[in-house]
Simulated scan of single mutants.
Amino acid sequence: MTYCVGLQLDRGLVFLSDTRTNAGVDNISVFRKLFTWEIPGERAMVLLTAGNLATTQAVVSLLDERNVAASERSPSLLTVPSMFQAARLVGDTLQQVIAERRDGGQSQASTFNATIILGGQIKDGPPRLYLIYPEGNFIEAQPDTPFFQIGETKYGRPILVRAYDPAMSFEEATKLLMVSFDSTIKANLSVSTPLDLQVLETDALRLGVSRRIEDTDADWRAISDGWSDALRSAFDSLPGVTL
């Protein structure tokens, strides 16, 4: 299982992903699910993946290969003129990889499905954030839907809905995402640290803060322990119930 979030702020975009993959309780591994591309001063992009690991690795590898062999007839993430076209390219690549497995006779094609979050900014355009489905179609984040989650979404969603503010600083947004991930990790053993953080500041047109958050990270431990204490305190402060 996986948990990844892309968050749109007035200041830019913030991304956080876990790194755990599992094929049963006795086969647990760490794989990166956050990938980046940039041409400093011209574009910067971040991609988060959830779903079948072989599918997502194939998608990222194909995107990398197209960056090397880009041409007018074969665009890449480093040459497309807009983030919309970047989302189309990623969606087409994802659909192609899944279709090849289906056409190759592999049963239960849904087993090879994957979902992707893509965000970034290309010069002369605003930062944009997309959720890309296995079929290759996608939707864009809007003021009413300012963040996307993929993977194990339900445990970490309530705090995002309640506490999100587009005017947040990057530090506040990172704290919010840490709380969301802490709630998910405590409820689902298939999501775990280390976590990968990436920040994109509006109009910087380069990758911002990038950080791997281990379980022993001082900020992570302070947020996790502090959130648990705050929940207990809030619970204790509620009025009693008469039976």
Rank of each mutant, 00 (worst) to 15 (best):
N52L: 09
T49Y: 01
K33S: 03
A50T: 08
N52Q: 14
L48P: 00
N22E: 14
T55E: 01
V60I: 15
T55P: 01
L16M: 15
L63V: 00
Q57H: 05
E38S: 05
V25F: 11
L53D: 00
E42N: 12
G51Q: 03
N52D: 14
K33C: 03
D64P: 06
I39A: 12
R20P: 08
R43E: 01
R20G: 10
K33F: 03
T56Y: 05
R73S: 14
T56K: 06
L48K: 05
L62Q: 14
R73P: 04
L53F: 02
L47C: 04
D18W: 03
A23W: 12
R66K: 09
F15G: 09
D18V: 04
A54F: 05
R73W: 15
L62Y: 04
A70K: 15
V30F: 07
N22C: 10
P75V: 00
I28S: 02
R32M: 13
N67M: 05
R32G: 10
R73C: 13
L16E: 09
A50P: 04
I39L: 12
R66L: 07
L16G: 08
T49I: 06
R73D: 15
T36N: 15
T56N: 07
S17H: 08
V59P: 00
G24D: 10
G51T: 06
A44R: 02
L53R: 01
A54M: 12
F15Q: 12
E65P: 01
V59K: 00
P40G: 11
R43S: 08
L34D: 08
T21H: 14
F31H: 13
S29N: 13
G24V: 07
V30Q: 11
W37G: 08
A58I: 06
G51V: 05
W37S: 10
S17W: 05
P40A: 10
A69L: 10
R20H: 13
F15R: 10
T36I: 14
A54D: 06
R66D: 11
S29R: 14
R43M: 11
W37N: 12
V30P: 02
V59Y: 00
V46D: 02
N27H: 11
V59A: 02
Q57E: 07
T56G: 01
